[in-house]
Amino acid sequence: MYMYRPSRIIPLAMLPEGVRGIIVKIIGGRGLVRRLTEMGFTPGIEVTVLKSSFQGPILAMIRGSRIVIGRGVAMKILVEVGG
């Protein structure tokens, strides 16, 4: 899906505050991937980082809900920015 659109793919944790990204993939154990998917983190969906802090958790907005994600988890959600 992201093949023909030149852009960067980074972990959600690296997304600066207020910036939007499109979810590409979640890497991680089955339970984690499943939980995130159920909460609406599916590929192709837009996610905005509302709050982020160095080494702390992030607050993300996805499908109209505001979800706190620990840094470890946020490193496993890959998003596409720019393009």
Binding site: G28, L32, R35, L36, M39, P57, L59, S65, R66, I67, V68, I69, G70, G72, V73
Partner: peptide, 11 residues
């Protein structure tokens, strides 16, 4: 290991 932290924030 670490438990992932995922929690919805209410309004």
């Amino acid at each position: 290991g670490r438990t992932p932290f995922i929690m919805e924030l209410p309004m």
